[in-house]
Design a protein around this nucleic acid. Structure first.
Lengths: 233, 233
DNA sequence: GTCTTATTCAAGTGATCTGTTGAATACTCG
DNA sequence: CGAGTATTCAACAGATCACTTGAATAAGAC
């Protein structure tokens, strides 16, 4: 009867470990991070994470076996999405733990950002306040699908590749704040560089949509039709 | 230069995966769970988790390499402890995710508890209210070291093995609420069975110290001397 | 100094995991 | 129906992992 107790414990912790195993491979974490930005097809995810399609598919099936993501067949494509908001919160918790416990995270990040000449680190909270107050032009520089899935209210979708062509849409007199997927994403950095070259007062906001929502703030979504159109682009 | 970006991403996710890898083995999660109850020696942890000492030591070193736990040499023993409260919060987040996403958790638990004749499931919040209001006698039935490390304010330490001998310390007229390590621990169940046989109105509270603290409520700790005494018992 | 005890180390085994490759499946479109 | 495409499956190589065993280390006790 004591061994029955052991078996119970073993099966409980085995279940918990399903979640742990799912996030024990770097590439799966990357996929999960991407999926927290919005639903994606296998091919898109494979491209973004630098994986072969077959490999990405396998990783996604591991995540699905742990019920962290769901797959839905959409015509010729299979769209994967995070199974629940709680999964994103868990991802943030894990990332936060890694940030606070593993000095290597800050070290690697600082090294990379310094090499790119981006040592700014403005007072982040003041930036967020200005964004919330609507005092600045807010640019969402992620791919349009991700903007459609969720974006900061009032933000304009302008993927990095489009900035050059569409820069005239932005009033010169207003400061611009660009954001992307979060603190480890550099798309907003590129955007800021470009905007500054053109004479704009531009700054990068570290927070992405995920961090925004984690604070309990509302996000906007595109209309249904727009999402559908975006996902087969 | 694009590959430089890839290398940066890879090293960031590799860091995040250190945390994931640490919690990808069931036995390591069990050790982490135990450590969230309080500091322990290698031998004690090995015994509680059903591991050989050498194996437990190896798992603990993996957890330490991920900076989730810390080791401190105390004379002949090595005491392991959780490196930070954030680690406990992360453990709770992972457990919560497993509970909400994996039906197997509830299923396995229900099966085991039903077999033990414990299908009660009283209104948990009402029980917690009565505990907070001091309306009941609260019994901490975990090993004394864990009580010393942290316990619910007002609780009496009475490990399951001691209950028979010390049952007279409990006033018969007052209802008794027993708790242990949390929802998957059965020590409080055994205590409740024993107490009911002796004519007490006894109930099990699912929440343990960890869940109590997660709600932002205070816990009590034993004096320094008492902790030291307990850890070499 | 020698004995005892807690912990760690080192080496080995079987299992599991990641990523590759090429074929199979399932769906759309003409 | 047949062609084309996105995804999955199956089989494999190499690496890593969990656990065991027996020896080594380090501290306290006599």
């Amino acid at each position: 009867m004591a061994s029955r107790h052991r078996r119970f414990k073993d099966s409980i912790y085995e279940q918990f470990a399903r979640v742990g195993k799912a996030v024990s491979a770097p590439k799966r974490i990357e996929l999960l991070d991407l999926l927290c930005q919005g639903p994606r097809t296998v091919e898109a995810l494979a491209g973004l994470a630098g994986l072969s399609v077959a490999n990405a598919s396998q990783h996604l099936q591991v995540l699905r076996a742990a019920r962290l993501v769901e797959a839905e067949k959409k015509g010729l494509y299979v769209e994967y999405r995070v199974a629940d908001d709680e999964v994103c919160r868990f991802f943030l918790a894990m990332r936060g733990l890694a940030e606070s416990r593993l000095a290597e995270v800050a070290q690697v990040t600082r090294a990379y950002f310094a090499d790119r000449g981006a040592m700014e680190q403005v007072e982040g909270d003041e930036l967020v306040r200005r964004v919330r107050a609507g005092e600045v032009t807010v640019l969402d520089v992620r791919p349009r699908e991700e903007f459609d899935a969720a974006h900061i209210p009032g933000a304009i979708s302008m993927p990095v590749a489009e900035i050059e062509a569409r820069i005239d849409e932005l009033p010169k007199r207003r400061a611009v704040v660009a954001y992307c997927r979060g603190p480890y994403c550099v798309m907003a950095l590129e955007a800021v560089e470009l905007l500054r070259e053109r004479g704009y007062a531009a700054q990068r906001m570290e927070q992405g949509v995920l961090e925004w929502r984690a604070r309990g703030w509302r996000v906007s979504r595109a209309k249904r039709g727009a999402v559908a159109r975006a996902s087969d682009a």
